[in-house]
Design a protein around this nucleic acid. Sequence first.
DNA 1: GAGCACTGC
Length: 754
Amino acid sequence: MPAAVYKPSPLVRNPSYFGLKTDKNHKRHKKSISWVDVSDEEDRGKKSLKRRNSAVNGHHDSAVNGHKHKKRRHSNDSSPQVNGAGPSQINGTLGTKAKALQEQRSQLPIAKGRDALIEEIRQNEVTILLGETGSGKTTQVPQYILESGLARNGMIAVTQPRKVAATSLAHRVAAEQNTTLGDLVGYAVRFDEKSSDQTRIKYLTDGMIVRELMSDPLLSNYSVIIVDEAHERTLRTDLLIANLKNIQKQRNQPSDAKGKGKANTSNPLKIVVMSATLDAEKFSKFYHNAKIIYVKGRQHPVKIYHAAESQLDYADAAMRTFFQIHTDQPPGDVLIFLPGQEDIESLQKSIELYAKQLPADKPAVLTCTMFAAQDHSQNNKAFNPTPPNMRKCILATNIAETSITIPGIKYVIDTGKCKEKQYLARISGGGFDTLLTRDITKSSAMQRTGRAGREGSGVCFRLYTEEAFQNMAVSGEPEILRCSLTASILNLKTLGQNLEELDLMDKPDFDTIASALKTLWLLGAIDQKQKLTPAGRKMAAFPLEPQYSCAVVASVQYNCVAPVLDIVSILSSSSKLFLDVTDQRTAAAEARRMFVHPRGDHLTVLNAFRAYKEIAAADSKSVRREWCRKHFLNERTFIEAKDIREQLVLVCRRVGINVEGEKEGGEEEEDGVIRSMGHGLAGNSAFLQPDGTYKQTMGQTIIKIHPGSSICDKKVPAIIYDDLMYTNQIYARGVSSIPKSFFLSVQAFNQRQA
DNA sequence: GAGCACTGC
């Protein structure tokens, strides 16, 4: 093998940011932020707390730190009203498994601070809990609150940005409480709910509780709401945090406030915001300087190496570093973080190529790739145990940063890059998303590093200098500043709220709001005075992008509700329908040709869905799977779309849209479908230009049809599209041909409907 | 001529 391959990238050893075992490390860490272990004794912790608290609210004492925590979790007796909510059969009847769980619980870093923590929450309306990964905060805090009686008779909600987190946490906590899932401990995520009258601790996605706002604006079923992973600043978390501030004001204040005699003083609300990273003060300030409590985590130490000089080619640097690890370091799998699929696939090829030239005495290399667009069976290969005398090398996107934990990782190679979607708002022609490679943030770097220390001590190689690390932003821009607000604004309108008046932690800029309002007006969802129209109220009832709920509402006119539901169900599914395996593109295109509709992607999707439903009705699971595989279709998309469709049918019934009684197929139906979609996508339309590109009808932007589209090569006079995405060029995706004459009248139609 | 990650009673 060429020597250059094994020439190590210049790397500089740095002390660990995670190995907080020694004082030396602690001091270093303090430079960025001081973590106080609630289980730790005074001196170390108090100092930092003082500094922190004086910055925040001037309180120098801390209950968390000032108490000695002799009492363990069984101390229900210390609370006024336990309400039978303690762990069931805690005495005597516990099985060995349950005992082991209790033992584990009491060993968590957070366990020793339990009483102090409860006291803080009892005394404050809002508590900010800053905890490292592995502290146990997400599973334990809700149980502490329940066992202490703080929740009275109400429920404790714990919100999560991701569905899997919500469900698996509920499983875990139900086991710890030694109860059946759905009794005392439950969860609610879209399409899946396990809860009952008995449920006191409920894990839900943030989106779920935001939806719940629409039917219960005061969230009166919950007496404690714990917002977890708040640092991720998802759009829905931000909306929730803003609403909670309002709700708490209404629920906790005496009823004389502003003539709103409805304030329910008998049902006050407590808020706990949990964050894993450095920006706790922002939450604290937002909630009137709420107290911040720190909990140290438990993580195996990870050695961090930074590159001595910046690496121009991060993929090449990653490869050299990998082989450096492979030849010099003890066994253990390697995880490489890369920005996207393209880098992953090309690096995989390079690594495999060079791995073949390894000397015989070196272990062989097994590469796995992981990214969201990849088939799940492929992604899951990373979970297979590494065969003896082999080293696994996993090439992954951000998917492995938070969503998926891969066991056995000892080494992390961090390129310091990721791709991020950013919405570019423009009033004319509508905004569009950009998807560009950029530097990661500090908290993201820490998260990636932490992936090497899940099971034992590890090593992280950062392919950027320490200086570059120091120059990184602390955390990313909140999503609310990076995405289209059309759906959120519509949903808020049904609550009588205007986004621009909402007390948000970060306020989106004017263009983003104006662009969303314009879109909503085009759809007929709001009128000239920005007031919600009856059609808009219908649209908001659907868990869909307003463009698509508008299409559903419009489809009634064309007697084609059913096929439009099929299409929007597929389009709003989280995974793509058409699988893209880079080196089998021609085969995939060939296999899909039978679904392609000359009028474009929307009807192509409809054809595929109908074909699948036919197969699904007649054949076994394995036949179905094979059929999907053969046609390069993602069966998960179909399965999810069927769930979504069922949900949409229910909403249709509720808002008085009749789904039944339409005949399938025919030109008339096709026409109606395109026209319905055209109502929703009127703002997303463009005319053909002489040079073969398209120009927006409502803006000046020149766009191209995405190469993945079924009508990419066709030069049709006018198109509608699902969205625009800027990568190398501005591409329109999800494109259909539409008669020029039609969509000029659409706007007028939408307004009339309004 | 091409694909960061999530989510919705």
